[in-house]
Computed example of a mutant assay.
Amino acid sequence: MSIPLSVLDLAPVSAGSTPQQALRNTVELAQRAEEWGYHRFWLAEHHFAAVASSSSTTLIGLVAAATSRIRVGSGAVQAGHHTAASVVEAFGTIDALYPGRLDLGLGRSGHRRAKFGPSGAGGTAGSTTGGAAGDEVRVRDGVVIPPPFDFGSLAGKERYLAQDRALYQPGAEPVAFTEYVDQVRALLDGTYRTPEGVELHAVPGERARVQLWLFGTSAGESAQLAGRLGLPFAVAYHTVPATALDAVDAYRAAFRPSVELAEPYVVVSADVVVAEDDETARHLASTYGHWVHSIRAEGGAKPVLDPATAPPLSPEQHRVVRDRLLTQFVGSPSTVVERLEALRRATGADELLITSVTHDHKARLASHRLLAEAWGLREAAAA
C-alpha cells in the first residue's frame, strides 16, 4: 500500500483576489482534502507577504472547525516569534474543542540570525544577485538535488530588519531552539519549572492530545534534536532541496526510541501541480517561478500571477529560482506519481507532504484531487 499523502497550505493570495478569498479557499481545500483521503492538513506561518496564513494557529482552529476527521496542524510555528507558553496554550485551546487531531510542528524560523539566509522551515530570505552556488545538479535515486542557493548578497536587507522589528517585542531575545522545545514538552506534560523552581501549568494546554513535530531543512540542529528526542521529523524538500536528503539522513542517524516513537518517522514535502496532461500542468505552474522570485528577491511573496498574462522569467530571474523549478513536481497524474515515488524511495519517507501554488483555485483543487485518485488514497483508507 502507498504511503499517506498530506497537504501543506499557505493560503496564497492570487493576483486580482484578496486575502479574505484566500482564507475561504484554504478552508475549502481542507474540506476537500479530507474527502479525498489526505491524512493531514498543515498551515505554514509567513508574515508581511501575500499569503493569508500569517496567523496560522488561528487558521488551524478554523480549519479544525470546518472538518471532522483529518489531522490539522502547523508546518511550522516560527518558534522565534512566539513564547513556548503562548503556543501550548493556543494549541491546547483548539485541542479542548477538537481533541486528538492536532499536530504541533515547530521550526527554527524567527530566531535572530547573525547573517541573512534561509530562515528554517519555509525560509524567505533571498537575493537579487544570489543564485546556485555552482551549476552541478545531482540526481540521487531519481531525485533532483540542485546545488545550494547562495543567499550571500541579500537585497532589501532593510525590509527584513523592519519585519524582525515588527515581530519581536522591544528587547526580546528568543531562547535557544533546544531549550524552546524542552519548554514546550514540559508545558504539555505538566512538568514545567522556571529556573527558580516555580511550577507553572498551561490551562488549557497541559495534557493536550497534540502530536509534537520538528521541522528542518538541513542536517543541523533540528534534524539531530528530533532524532535524539524520538520525535517525528518533517523535511522541507520543497523549499531547500539541496540539503533535504542530508536532513533525513541526519535525523535517522540521531534517532533514539521514545514514548512517542519506536522508529524514525519522516515526512518529506514536495511542491506539486497536477493536471490532466503534462502541457496543461506546465502552463498552470508557469508562474510559480515568479512567485518564488518575489520571495527571494523582492522582500516576500507577492500575489500569484495569472499564467495567461504573466511575462516569462528573465534569465536573471530564472537563475535565482532555478533550484526550485528543477525540483517542482509538475505534470499529468502518472508523471507526478512516478516522480513522487522516486522521492519516497530516495528518502524512505513514511509520508509525503504536498503543497501547491497556482493562480486558479479551481486548478489547485483539481491538482490535489487528481493526485489523490492516482495515489489511491481512498482505496488505501478503505482497505
Rank of each mutant, 00 (worst) to 15 (best):
A11I: 00
P19G: 14
E28V: 03
L29E: 12
A30H: 12
A30E: 11
R40F: 05
F41M: 09
F41W: 06
A44D: 09
F48M: 10
S54D: 13
S55F: 02
S56E: 10
I60L: 10
I60A: 00
L62T: 06
A64Q: 08
A64F: 02
A65I: 02
T67R: 09
S68E: 15
I70S: 11
I70M: 07
V72G: 01
S74Y: 01
G80K: 01
F91G: 00
I94A: 00
L97C: 12
Y98I: 00
G100W: 05
G100R: 12
R101P: 00
G105S: 11
G107N: 14
G107A: 13
S109F: 03
R113D: 06
F116Q: 09
G120H: 07
A133Y: 01
E136I: 04
E136S: 09
R138T: 07
R140P: 01
R140L: 14
R140D: 14
D141C: 04
G142N: 10
V143K: 05
V143N: 06
V144F: 04
I145V: 15
P146D: 11
P146H: 11
P148I: 03
G152S: 15
L161V: 05
A166C: 06
A166G: 12
L167Y: 10
Q169V: 02
P170W: 09
P170T: 07
E173S: 10
E179V: 07
D182W: 02
D182I: 01
D182Q: 15
A186I: 00
T191E: 00
T191R: 15
Y192M: 00
Y192I: 00
T194F: 05
G197D: 14
L200R: 13
R207W: 07
V210I: 07
V210H: 00
L212N: 01
L214V: 06
F215Y: 08
F215N: 14
G216T: 06
T217R: 04
A219F: 03
Q224P: 05
Q224E: 14
L225K: 11
G227L: 08
R228M: 11
R228L: 10
L229P: 15
L229H: 10
P232Y: 07
Y237S: 08
H238E: 12
P241D: 12
A242F: 03
V248R: 10
D249I: 02
R252V: 04
A253Q: 14
P257F: 02
V259M: 04
P264H: 06
Y265G: 06
S269H: 04
T280Y: 01
T280P: 01
T287F: 06
W291K: 06
W291N: 10
V292Q: 15
V292E: 10
I295K: 05
G299N: 09
A301N: 08
A301G: 15
K302T: 05
P303W: 06
D306C: 11
A310S: 15
A310C: 11
P312K: 08
Q317M: 10
R324W: 11
R324I: 02
F329P: 05
V330S: 11
P333R: 09
S334F: 02
S334K: 09
E338N: 13
E341P: 01
L352A: 13
L352Y: 09
T358S: 13
K362H: 12
A363H: 12
L365Q: 14
L365C: 13
R369N: 04
A372K: 08
A372S: 14
E373L: 07
E373C: 07
L377E: 13
R378C: 01
A381I: 02
